[in-house]
């Protein structure tokens, strides 16, 4: 069965079982390996992508349920050069191994889109779904605040 998926602005027909998790379609079928597998069951956030702008765990989304909605992956979010969030990440020297970071950037991007000036509590609530085994949480927190400032032209 062929399913039409809209990913990063392009439509792709994919021939997979309807219950295939979106994560594996992105990674194996479309070769978009920036989206990571970390747990497979909505526990770690490594697979975070945007569906119609909202952060979702692609490991727990059946490909057949996406329909016409627009999927954005890490590859799509930075198609036109680094975003403010990514710049903030670099400036705060956030990453370590980096494996969680696509998911972190996607989650933070969605957070800032919905809440341009998040408080620490807002950051806790939004970002606690994303595990980082390298433990770079305080740098992520700083980078989100920095991105908020960059966005508002404060720096």
């Amino acid at each position: 069965m062929s399913i039409l998926l809209s990913v990063n602005g392009t439509k792709y027909p994919v021939d997979v079982e309807p219950d295939t998790p979106l994560l594996w379609v992105l990674r194996d079928t479309l070769g978009l390996t920036g989206t990571k597998y970390g747990c497979g069951v909505s526990l770690c956030g490594a697979c975070t992508v945007h569906i119609d702008g909202k952060a979702v765990r692609s490991c727990s989304v059946k490909v057949s349920s996406v329909g016409e909605q627009e999927i954005t992956t890490i590859e799509g979010v930075s198609a036109n050069g680094l975003t403010i969030v990514q710049q903030a990440w670099i400036e705060e020297d956030v990453v370590q191994c980096g494996f969680c970071q696509s998911g972190q950037v996607m989650a933070a991007t969605a957070l800032l889109a919905a809440n341009p000036k998040p408080s620490d509590t807002d950051i806790d609530d939004a970002m606690k779904r994303n595990i980082c085994r390298c433990g770079v949480y305080q740098r992520i927190r700083k980078a989100i605040h920095r991105a908020a400032e960059l966005n508002s032209g404060e720096v």
């Binding site: 390996t33 920036g34 992956t73 890490i74 680094l82 990514q86 020297d93 956030v94 980096g98 950037v105």
Partner: peptide, 19 residues
Amino acid sequence: QMRLDSGIKVTGKARFGLD
């Protein structure tokens, strides 16, 4: 000294074994 691999790791371009 800031990390050299930040750029490829915040854009999903870094290739891990899984990729």
